[in-house]
Design a protein around this nucleic acid. Structure first.
Lengths: 226, 226
DNA sequence: CCGCAAAACTAACCTACGGCAATCTCATTC
DNA sequence: GAATGAGATTGCCGTAGGTTAGTTTTGCGG
């Protein structure tokens, strides 16, 4: 988000509480009225929408450093759930303190920008679900996650830890977990990418990006993160 | 967006130009550097992402009254195209004038809110593509569009004009136009909904909402728009 | 009123993915 | 180290939706 140190400190000071969220726990349910937002410190948090049978579609995945629901500040209630994927720690920032923060117009713009990045990611996900087949979706997602993790120093560009079950991946990519298993096997057998027990290794990054038609520009990362 | 008259006037005064966009014209291409945003006056505008074969996925559809690319103000370049669907008129608002507008913190918050609504709609679209079958997607989209058009007085709750071809609908719902044709025929034959030559008539709104698992809350419309 | 293009529609065939039903492999706990 | 349970894996079969290759309708300019 390119916050300068002063802004960083200001946000840090606005934190009221550090919350521990056990793995696979719904932290916020759709429709709840919220008076604070959450910032991921470590672990993975997800935003999900459930269908009438309780089957979930992920609409976002949040890594350490991400504001999960900054938008709840302006919306005050959300139309989706917020749940932990892994065990996680989040910093709680009360809305009234955000209100004080955004008195600084520059910071206000940066926070706005952060929510716009989320929206850009939503659009990339729409493309993924609308135009790619199952393997393309997985490829696209892995490229995206690799790029994002790399930007926060959690990937070396080929290998990274990612504590998602095949079922989580399925809920992200809009396929069944059985089919996700088949796709992962294919990727493995073809020597392109190994996704196994919370660890991902991309053997042919260029190929994966082509297969998923991935172009990182929507992440608006620093140019140095080649 | 619930702007008060003064705010409305302020935005109107910020318009530099009214632009006519012929039907099916790309107005802004991904990657272009933008110095203004556009507000739809009449017609339909769409936001699309193309795959490598040029096949498009709609990631948003904008009706009269919508800001199409307000987010370009903070992002300055977009990762998707903006194209007219029908013949349209748009009001151009230069970014430097928006900069002046957002000096008013209240208005800044409302514009932020407007971009958050877009994001909420993206998430609903993600749910649509990720969890619904083709008929569910169409049902969901028609319910959404009906609700949105109703909010601006362009639908009576059952019938409305919608100048989309079957191919447009296909690009919105992530299916082929051939399959879209099959779905529309089914809806017609089962007496649920008639979509024909730029006109939609919903015969059984409740059924359609159930079929598409549609819940309008993500549109954050006034409560009176039952 | 004709000619043309775009859109709507149809049919026959094919495949990617879903659904179901097992089985297998771990890691955890007592 | 047996018991438990979550997750991974596999096979089989059914179907929603894609593909290809048309024909028919609609709307529009001349």
């Amino acid at each position: 988000m390119m916050l300068d140190p002063a802004e960083h400190a200001a946000i840090e000071k606005a934190v009221s509480e550090i919350k521990i969220v056990p793995a696979r726990t719904v932290m916020v349910e759709a429709g709840e009225t919220l008076r604070h937002s959450a910032l991921v410190i470590d672990g993975l948090m997800g935003r999900t929408i459930s269908d009438r049978d309780g089957l979930r579609q992920f609409v976002g995945l949040h890594l350490p450093g991400d504001f999960v629901d900054l938008h709840s500040y302006a919306l005050s209630q959300l139309e989706h759930d917020i749940a932990s994927v892994t065990h996680a720690r989040v910093a709680i920032v009360p809305h009234d303190r955000i209100h004080a923060l955004v008195a600084d117009t520059t910071l206000a713009r940066k926070l706005w920008f952060a929510t716009l990045l989320d929206a850009a990611m939503h659009r990339a996900w729409l493309f993924r679900l609308g135009r790619l087949d199952a393997m393309g979706r997985v490829a696209h997602f892995l490229c995206e996650t690799n790029a994002r993790l790399r930007a926060v120093g959690l990937s070396d560009g080929r290998r990274f830890a990612l504590d998602l079950t095949q079922n989580d991946l399925a809920e992200i990519c809009g396929v069944t977990s059985i089919h996700m298993n088949r796709i992962l096997r294919q990727l493995r057998e073809e020597g392109l990418c190994v996704v196994r027990s919370s660890h991902v290794e991309i053997l042919r990054p260029d190929w994966l990006a082509a297969r998923g038609q991935f172009d990182a520009s929507y992440l608006y990362l620093d140019p140095d993160a080649a």
